[in-house]
Amino acid sequence: MMKKKQDILHLLVLLAISFLSLSLIIKLRYSTWLQIKVVFILTLSYLIWSFVYHLHNKSLTKNIMIEYILTAALTLVIIMGLVI
């Protein structure tokens, strides 16, 4: 029960960060560079969140972290590809 509550709390933190980023992205839609900065900060928050979440759940493994890092890297290379 306690674990489920903590999981929900972790997810709420993640969703709050995502919604905040999304609203900033929409607000800053005419400033590509500021949008990119928001995505960078979101990506960093996502990595920190994943580390804390899996550490807390005692599920932190090398493979899991590699997957998070690669997902973060993929979003960054896609976003940077839009700056020509």
Binding site: L14, I25, H54, E67, T75, I78
Partner: peptide
């Protein structure tokens, strides 16, 4: 399955997609 969290990936990717859709060159 002991794995990374899909919801986290989807949240990050959704914001990235929104950036691509709303952004200007």
């Amino acid at each position: 399955r002991l794995a990374s969290h899909h919801v986290a990936h989807m949240a990050l990717m959704s914001v990235t997609a929104a950036t691509i859709l709303s952004g200007h060159i």
